[in-house]
Nucleic acid binder design. Structure first.
Length: 737
DNA sequence: CTTTATGGTTTTTTT
DNA sequence: AACCATAAAG
């Protein structure tokens, strides 16, 4: 018997012991969800004598997986290396590596990130001659990803309905999948889809995994999408030992295809499911919890729960109204100092949250000026930096020579005098010969339109990579990476091609990469796991920013509200509480999107243990100019007696409005009256004459959309051209008469 | 054929 | 302000 079950409350203990059959744990914020899950795994192993290799636990981040594993090991006092625990993506990747041959891939397939996807799509779009002006590759990528997350295939798509892109989508989808297969690559979405396909096509493989994983646990179930749902459903077919944990109020990934109905309808899928509600919050002071409850209580898409705490009420929530974003940042710094001196906080007790990454800049500047150390999660990811991606692309090509996206990324970097034209010729040749682009490089001499001099350069590159391919099993990953960086001249390039400051930071990043490879290898070897180059690359692809964060750094943490999920801090700032920002403008018109914005705020508020500071700015720099804004309607949803306004802000807050219809009307009117574009909207009509500074006089042919993003098609007589312009940037002026 | 300059376009959240 | 695609220069 493991000790410590007295750490659990009654409901938690019941939930831990309900091991067999479907179980839904509705766990409010700070209700000891992780603790319950941890004990449940320990209980299965220790009391029910289930082997750790027979348990599958799915978490939302790799960091959560690592922490949970450590906690279970501490409870058991034993190593549980054979427990499968990780994100959907990493678990699926692991299955796919093992079964890749069944799907016509090799086990060293490459995982394409969204940048790679866009590059691939660009190529396909040009081949299929999809009107590029109308649909950017980026837009198509997100559309396609959404479709794939819903486990839809080209044939499932209705090419007639919706906008013009639907006409092309099935075709793009087919070509894109074909391209991926030729490159021995899968994208993020394939990682989820392919296992399901495999389970459907080969029932014996489904059974194999079903039998292996006798107990399945899924955390953050409210953020699963359809593909993830199907994967789990097929996996537990037969034994049905499935335990899902989630909180519908914390569902914040709808935009990524997460389907809140997965959790709302769990009891319909499994009608004998036992449901446990964890409603006691151990994290936040009373006032904070009450405020958070009040906010999320305005939502309709919820099961509903009554989250309560025995903790003291604590301080009121401070609301600060700043003139502009700089002042907001200054105020944050003041309060950070105040918290440190009066309450003896350390930097690591403090988190500053915001809706969009762009907001961090001003705050960072102010923190730096005041010598407050901070770490920032998100923004430009470490592995997304150019200098890192370049080296990683070399490594990817070495592991998987079929990967033409990585090849094209580096074939002329550092500059080798091999340009686009040459590559297109080789690509054409590869297609004709039905060989990979890499193999075509080796046969460049057979292409008559390429000069011998040029061919020589190509061969040199081909030999370079071939050499590394044969070396890859002899050298360790670090050795490979560092030799590569100096031999190819990448290091030299970054040392010389930039100004000193930039150059130093880029070189430092490259060194950091080497270090993290070493760290990874050590860690993996220690745990008796796959440690080679391929596994490092997979780790890199599936790594989230939060995964490498640890709170032991003595620094203030800056991150988006999304990234804050699952974390807790004594002191939390939520900044930019303005209409248009939180809720974000484009997510405010649709009621269910507005509700997701509200949940996002709820997630942020419930991160705070003792002190919560909310702030907004009346004016904020956006792009290159200042925009005025009004306070977020969400502020209005917090009972006034829980708030303490900084003096200046009281008059800036909206009047408390009536409940019900009046309030909803108010939400709408915010967008009707406060959006000044609406007022200007009748400036532009079809047929209207306009003037443009570069194109001269023109006539409006068509209008699409509204507001800043309105697309205006104008025919310019003088130039004899027709252009589609976005209002925000177009700088058109109407001509009277 | 490659490199550089110019001008047009663009920011939501992320595995 | 920064990034990308295309056009002109080398």
């Amino acid at each position: 018997m493991i000790s410590g079950y007295d750490e659990l409350n009654e409901v938690q203990l019941e939930a831990v012991k309900a091991t067999d059959g479907p179980v839904l744990i509705l766990a409010g914020a700070g209700s000891g969800k992780t603790r319950s899950l941890t004990y449940r795994i320990a209980y299965l192993i220790n009391e029910k004598k289930i082997k750790s290799s027979e348990i599958l636990a799915v978490t939302f981040t790799n960091k959560a997986a690592r922490e949970m594993k450590e906690r279970v090991e501490n409870l058991l006092g034993a190593n549980i290396a054979s427990l499968w625990i990780g994100t959907f993506h990493s678990i699926c990747a692991r299955i796919l590596r093992a079964e890749s041959a069944q799907l016509g891939f090799t086990s060293s397939f490459t995982i394409y990130d969204s940048d790679d996807q866009v590059r691939a799509l660009k190529k396909i779009i040009s081949i299929l001659s999809v009107p590029q002006q109308l649909y950017s590759a980026k837009m198509i990528q997100s559309r396609l990803s959404r479709v794939k997350n819903q486990f839809l295939f080209p044939d499932d798509l209705d090419s007639e309905s919706g906008d013009g892109l639907d006409e092309y989508l099935p075709q793009i989808y087919r070509e894109y999948q074909k391209f991926l297969k030729e490159n021995n690559a899968m994208d993020f979405d394939d990682l989820l889809i392919k296992p399901i396909e495999l389970f459907d096509q080969k029932p014996e493989i489904r059974k194999k995994y079903s039998n292996k994983f006798k107990y399945v646990l899924v955390d953050e179930y409210q953020d699963t999408n359809r593909a993830q749902y199907l994967f789990i459903k097929k996996l537990v077919l037969g034994h049905r030992n499935l335990c899902v944990v989630g909180d519908e109020d914390q569902s914040i990934y709808g935009w990524r295809g997460a389907d809140i109905t997965n959790i709302l309808n769990f009891h319909k899928d499994f009608n004998d499911a036992r449901i446990f509600k964890l409603e006691e919050n151990y994290r936040s002071n009373g006032n904070i919890l009450q405020a958070a409850n009040a906010v999320v209580g305005h939502n309709t898409e919820r099961i509903g729960k009554n989250l309560w705490t025995r903790r003291k009420k604590g301080d009121k929530i401070t609301v600060y109204a700043a003139q502009n974003d700089m002042e907001e940042a200054k105020r944050i710094v003041d309060v950070v100092h105040e918290e440190m001196y009066t309450k003896k906080r350390s930097f690591s007790d403090i988190a500053i949250l915001y809706r969009t990454n762009a907001q961090s800049r001003v705050i960072e500047d102010e923190l730096r000026r005041n010598a407050i150390s901070y770490i920032i999660i998100g923004g430009v990811k470490f592995y997304d930096r150019k200098e890192i991606k370049d080296i990683v692309a070399y490594l990817k090509l070495i592991v998987n020579p079929a990967d033409s996206i990585s090849l094209k990324r580096i074939v002329n970097f550092p500059l080798r005098g091999i340009g686009d034209t040459t590559i297109s010729k080789i690509e054409k040749f590869a297609e004709m010969e039905n060989i990979s682009l890499f193999n075509a490089l080796g046969r460049v001499k057979e292409i008559s339109s390429i000069s011998p001099a040029m061919g020589g350069r190509v061969i040199e590159f081909f030999n370079l990579i071939s050499n590394y391919i044969s070396l890859k099993d002899e050298l360790s990953t670090v050795e490979l990476a560092s030799t590569l960086a100096s031999e190819t001249g990448i290091l030299h390039h970054y040392q010389t091609e930039y100004d000193q400051y930039e150059s130093e930071s880029k070189v430092a990043n490259i060194k950091e990469l080497f270090q993290s490879i070493e760290q990874f290898t050590e860690e993996r070897i220690k745990n008796n796991m796959e440690s080679g180059l391929a596994s490092f690359l997979e780790d890199v692809s599936l790594m989230a920013d939060i995964d490498s964060w640890n709170n032991s750094n003595n620094a203030v943490t800056l991150m988006t509200l999304h990234a804050a999920k699952g974390l807790e801090f004594p002191v939390v700032f939520i900044t930019g509480m303005e209409m248009g920002l939180l809720p974000l403008q484009r997510n405010s018109a649709d009621i269910s999107e507005l509700e997701e914005e509200r949940r996002l705020l709820y997630v942020g508020m419930t991160r705070a243990e003792e002190n919560l500071y909310l702030s907004f700015a009346r004016s904020r720099r956006k792009y290159a100019s200042f925009v005025q804004s009004t306070p977020s309607l969400f502020l209005d949803e917090i009972p006034v007696d829980l708030l303490s306004y900084t003096p200046a802000s009281r008059e800036a807050l909206p009047q408390k409005s009536n409940r019900g219809k009046a309030r909803r009307k108010k939400i709408q009117s915010y967008f009707e009256t406060s959006d000044e574009n609406q007022v200007v909207d009748d400036t532009y009509k079809v047929g209207q004459d306009v003037y443009h500074s570069t194109f001269g006089k023109g006539k409006i042919m068509n209008l699409e959309g509204s507001g800043d993003k309105m697309k205006i098609t104008v025919h310019f007589q003088d130039e004899g051209i027709t252009k589609k312009l976005i209002r925000q940037y177009a700088n058109l002026s109407p001509i009277e008469g």
